[in-house]
Design a protein around this nucleic acid. Sequence first.
DNA 1: AAAAGTTGCTCAAATACTTGAACAAGCGGC
DNA 2: GCCGCTTGTTCAAGTATTTGAGCAACTTTT
Lengths: 381, 381
Amino acid sequence: MAHDGGCSLFWALLPSPSSLGQLVAMSGTSAPRLKDVAEAAKVSLSAASRILRGEQERFGEETCRRVLEAARKLGWRRNLLVNGIQTGRTKTVGVMIPPFDSFWVDVLAGIHLCLESADYLPITVWVGDCQEMPRFEQDEQQGLRQISRLLDRRVDGLILWPSFAVAYYEHFRELIERRVPVVVIDHEYSAEQIADSIETDEQRCAHTVAEHLLALGHREIACFSSRETAWQAWAVRRRASFEAAVDELAGLEVSTWRLNPWGSNGLEVATDILTRQPRPTAVFCVTDHEAVYVYEAAETLGLRIPEDVSVIGFADLDFAGTMHPPLTTMRQRPKEIGRRAAQLILDRLDGDYADSPPTTIRVGGDLVVRQSCSHPPCETP
Amino acid sequence: MAHDGGCSLFWALLPSPSSLGQLVAMSGTSAPRLKDVAEAAKVSLSAASRILRGEQERFGEETCRRVLEAARKLGWRRNLLVNGIQTGRTKTVGVMIPPFDSFWVDVLAGIHLCLESADYLPITVWVGDCQEMPRFEQDEQQGLRQISRLLDRRVDGLILWPSFAVAYYEHFRELIERRVPVVVIDHEYSAEQIADSIETDEQRCAHTVAEHLLALGHREIACFSSRETAWQAWAVRRRASFEAAVDELAGLEVSTWRLNPWGSNGLEVATDILTRQPRPTAVFCVTDHEAVYVYEAAETLGLRIPEDVSVIGFADLDFAGTMHPPLTTMRQRPKEIGRRAAQLILDRLDGDYADSPPTTIRVGGDLVVRQSCSHPPCETP
DNA sequence: AAAAGTTGCTCAAATACTTGAACAAGCGGC
DNA sequence: GCCGCTTGTTCAAGTATTTGAGCAACTTTT
């Protein structure tokens, strides 16, 4: 067990007062310093420093034992702030990603896992109200402030949500120049690429989706895109890739719908799609979120999924499997995306890789076939 | 706009090389120091320090302007690491909460929002694989390591996931003694309370749920609890509160089921509940997660919700509203929980509140009536 | 017995900044 | 010409730790 007597993994147990009142009221001894350890072990400050940093060969066995023992007893722990000042490295990476759905939560998970294995720590800042996809327009200033707060803490690198990539482009320049690596997730650079970027392989994924629907026999296909604001590059690419794939594979044209710029008319759009003549037999939703609207509209209109309309989503968000019927969707690999984003930062920081030109990593996806897609109804035409 | 010429909110634009290759390859000038600002403004280091910290009355208007201007041009930003060393306050709060479902994501949102307004930053560490509820047993050592990593960064306070509260009890003692405030979410202290604690008001919520079911006429009521391991105090309390409320209100006994300690037999338990004789007409699920199993089992058994069985959940997780039928559930107030947890830390840190004895804050809930509950079927008995 | 090497440890400077105290230069008023 | 005010300076110590250089003391070799 962790709390064996006499010392602890955290800090030393003081000759502890048994009453609670006392405990809270006592004026806390602040964290022990290296000086305290050195004194307790009767060695110089620098000897203690070296021994505790692992440079033990240079010292006598007995001295090492004394220092280690003293540190353990006092519950000393190294102060990474000081390390940060001295080395210019805080072992900390700033992350600005609002985890408003399970995709982004998983991306964060990947980042955490990867950074942890390198003994780095992500520091996450959120924008917007964290309840829905942030409205970039109104949150731009807040985003800038948040990045500032990260830089004040001297983060070694930065991982960012796509929306902010566009407007902050000029700022990234400066960061890169200052050797603060920046990785952007799900944002493709159109012109010169300044920072590393990692994204879902939209072309390949859209191709797979198109293949699936066409193989089932669908010919009247709709695409339900998100708000395609300038900073939602992924939506544009996903929709465009899908249109291109359907065209390439079957020479068919997809009828495309979009959310309004506020993302507030999901149900209306879904209804429009399903009441169009001729009615699409399959709807590709650029995200599982849009699929929810289609399910809702279908229910209202008395259309059965998948008998009357097939619906296919994208992302495989946590609710996709429990929808009714379970949603067929293109699963992204958010954890891998996060992991590789973090790895990119780490590589830039201390690899030989540090000076290579910016890359774009494309991560594939996996089609999860559930029960929302079937052959088109016979009486369609 | 943010990027007006000549200076920037981040760091100064250097006389920037236009080619990308150059940009990446150039040896980055590191962040400007106060010394640089002082030199640029032709004042002493300490004058610059004072002016930038707001002590401007002692200096001439012109000098202040020069210093501020120089700082802006060079893109100087204060180094919170240094501040942290000097003041012992890093303006940083460690958070150990794995956001494996939307409840915890919202708690995190609340924490972020509150801390941000005080110019604090949460530093979040995760445990487990972040995909499902962490298994505390196997993640205990990892949890301890994570807290260590936070303390190495000298966080000013700690907000913790309940599971870890129990095993780390002894360690908290030390933290409190060292004046590092600790807040535990959703964990009730049975014996002496050592840290602040914030939780959902289980009694009141369970009472409301019981009332709702009884008012609909249910008499044969089941309770589907989670794994009730020692460190899942909330589950025990929620279930017990519900049993007590049903007893108090109607003198009825609830038949209770639990997940196994690995949480792996959800579907089996749900099936057991629904095949019991006499069959319960209503199932209270300690969490929306369990409700999903009941839905699944009901579908397999050909039972309709709510015609044959009423199901009521707890938490109002993001998927509750899109379940089929939409789940009636007791909505918790995760954002408020997070906000108040953070506030508790801040109060301990610099309020007069610093020395008061540990409190427990209980946050209410709101019954969200959707479509998974109705009157019991007539032919029940 | 002197030279050389090893072991074990210490000194002092460096990291980036804050802050209190003392002090100096320039100015106007008396 | 002196007083006192404004404006700014320098000095020094403090924050917790790292690290290159170097110094004793002791052992081993010659």
